[in-house]
Amino acid sequence: MLLSDVLETHGYDFLEYSHASIKRRIIRLYALDNFVSFAEFRYTVKTDKQYFKRFLEEITVNVTEMFRDPNFYKALRNDVLPVLGTYPFIRIWVAGCSTGEEAYSLAIVLKELNLLQKSLIYATDINPSVLEKAKKGIFPLNYLKGYSENYVQSGGAKDFSSYYTANYSLAKFDETLNSKMIFSTHNLVSDHSFNEFQLILCRNVLIYFDKDLQHKVFQLFDNSLEKLGYLALGSKESLDFWSRAKEYRRLKTEKIWRKL
């Protein structure tokens, strides 16, 4: 009901999201914001544009980290990006980039492989306010210790702190990193393909979608991926049950597939 309102009034379609997860997010927000009744909550979501911004930010999951799953980044560094490095120009799409931690991680690896100059990272999300944060490249300093450990485990050999300037409780990442990023809103549910890429990263987004929607998004990625391009998913996501999975070959142990 609430989600039908959201679609009708605001144009965001959450109807094909996994029910248990989206329901939990909605109930969490309803409790967090102390509404008197669910009817009042529903009315506010429907009519209050400012509150809807918050709603959108809170019911989508924006938890992310840099170099999450270090072995995944190791595979990108050793097996995927060197192949893309043979191309004159590298186009990468980070779909569902949230506050940008993965895009910055990727830019760091590209920089270390001397590929950043000829790369362009398109970082998109459904949610305009997280993109504002992503553009700034400023992350809480207390997370950086963990990120630095991930970075080292992923095969990074530089001094991680050379990539940011610490200022009180915040770390601002080097602007050469986001000089190669383009941020834009994109809704995987309703928007179309907008370019052709050699690498698409979409990690821990599809777990929130039901199976039909997952398959629609795979089709969207297929339309947006060059032949021999790579598709990278989250550690618990898989292309396996999609009808066209045979047209892709998986790389070793990581959740990375190459389009044949």
């Binding site: 996994s18 029910h19 248990a20 997860s21 938890v63 821990n204 777990i207 929130y208 989250g234 618990k236």
Partner: peptide, 12 residues
């Protein structure tokens, strides 16, 4: 998480 149709969902 457990869905109504008795399947699992994961949530990060």
């Amino acid at each position: 998480l457990i869905e109504e149709n008795e399947t699992f969902s994961l949530d990060y």
